[in-house]
Design a protein around this nucleic acid. Structure first.
Lengths: 120, 120
DNA sequence: ACTTCAATTTCACTATAAGTGAAAAACATT
DNA sequence: AATGTTTTTCACTTATAGTGAAATTGAAGT
């Protein structure tokens, strides 16, 4: 029976399917973004690998993320990024959002003279 | 009393403190990475803004993330990136990690001929 | 209103990352 | 050893991040 995790698709087929160059797949491998099975020196990819790569492409092209960010984000998730992120940075961030909101309103009203009260 | 959220630091001071160019702060503003208070046309930053910017710099230079990724990551957090991420991609990813592990071992043993059994 | 001075914006350039074509190298098979 | 295919290397291209310098804008004083 075929399995999503079975590594059976050769590189050219995967590249064609994704509409990318096979060189790009080698390139991604350098960053450990995907690890095909190697039988002898040939590479074989699974359906899962393909889904995964599609997702990576989406993150890059629809969200403008770079390769490293994707690796960090997915691998270590918020562990590194936010759990490790100190309380006061989280606080700053909330404040930043409030400020931004405030500012957006301000720009609409087009009053630039009197300073805005701080949101606490 | 002074407050972390008080916007009182002018741009040049902030830039100097962070060791960056003030142009970079304008640049970040374009991406809404920070929103100083504008009194007249002058910009004022808070201590929180400075902490926030330090964190952004850290993500960029220690983790190799790009501006967009940081915006996405922090703003919408895993909501967009992972909650929205379909089950099978998560699965692929787990599998990918297993595969990678497997591969690392393999490279150590330096056997490249017989195919590895799939980890299920 | 005009001048001055500093803050801001625009323009243009540099450096690094992402991606790819083509040539060279490396295997496996006959 | 020769052939054919996969992989690697080299070099080039485009996009993003960052910054200097010039041009512009706006506030304040006169």
């Amino acid at each position: 029976m075929f399995n999503e995790a079975d590594k059976s698709y050769p590189i050219e087929l995967v590249a064609d399917f994704l509409g990318i160059n096979s060189r790009t797949l080698y390139y991604y491998e350098k960053f450990s973004l995907v690890c095909p099975l190697r039988r002898g020196r040939k590479r074989y990819y699974s359906k899962e690998d393909i889904n995964w790569l599609e997702y990576v492409r989406e993150l890059m092209y629809e969200h403008g993320m770079n390769l490293r960010s994707i690796i960090i984000l997915i691998k270590r998730r918020d562990a590194v990024i936010l759990d490790r992120c100190p309380e006061d940075v989280v606080l700053c961030f909330k404040n930043y959002l409030a400020r931004k909101d405030n500012m957006a309103k301000k720009i609409k009203i087009e009053e630039e003279d009197e300073p805005v009260k701080d949101v606490k």
